[in-house]
Amino acid sequence: MNKYKLTVSHAPFWHDGDSLFQMNMNILLAALPAAIFGIFQFGASAFGVLALSVGSAMFWELVMNMVSKKPLSIGDLDAAVIGLMFGMMLPPITPWWVVITGTFVAVIVGKMIFGGIGANPFNPALIGMAILMLSWKAFFDFDTSLVDFVFDFTELAPLAAIKFQGAGAAEMFSVGDLFMGKEVGAIGSVFGLGLVLGGIYLILRGYIRWEISLSFIVGIIVTAFIFNMVNSENYAGPLFHLFSGYTLLGAFFLMTENSSSPVNTIPMFIYGFLGGLMIILMRNIGSYADGTVLAILLLNLVNPLIDNIRPKALGKGENNA
């Protein structure tokens, strides 16, 4: 009796139009200023590393999709984001096999074996980084990696410099230079201004949770400030820490990875703040020059515990009038 078939599905019949693709597209877009700056600063090899990283990350996901006979998921661009984040953390001169091993670990071990998007307890790109740093430490020494480059600014990786020469070395770097990318470092982490702009863009668009970024930055500043107050000879000041190493990349792109970070308000503040605190502790007390990678992974690990602090649902417990 029906001439035609109607679509039958369930309420709500509207959607705000958002999707995974949209979100990842925006994250890629937001990371572009910093990435492009890195390419200009460090040249074609930096471009090669980024391209290989993004490409191989997507390739690994595709392979995994086919092996496990799951629907292809690279179209949601999640692998591309992992690849770009991973590439941005690498030194401009990184052997190709290091890059593709890293993305293999990031995509396969960091994401796919946990069940794919949304199921990863750790930030996949950071898993890739952590494994590489443990295996081939030498490739992550920015100073040796960039030894053949000539720059018109201090040719030393800031965090390594203070690690080995003491906080006094921080004076070689003006905060303005650091912010504007005049520093030695990873492809995507040197251009502070670009990262901040990208981060603000993502916050305004609602694609990252501002609570995490903000409290992370506060954590960095407060902790570094206290160290610096207590002993300014040994410990560099807050702004130096904020604008060097992976700090800003961490604030807007790494800490905020959805699946490995909390979603409730109070937990987000705790998580962000602890992230900042841990990084400074690792830099000032631990043996690592940067510490961002391990600090964030550590926070990923405790995230489920932190995120347990959630408001009472309607009609449960004490809000019951």
């Binding site: 009796m1 029906n2 078939k5 109607l6 679509t7 369930h10 309420a11 709500p12 509207w14």
Partner: peptide
């Protein structure tokens, strides 16, 4: 064909097949 016929509102309604 394939349009949706919603009874009730866009948030809480249901779709009928006929």
């Amino acid at each position: 064909e394939k349009d949706r016929l919603i009874i009730g509102g866009p948030m809480k309604g249901f779709a009928t097949y006929t």
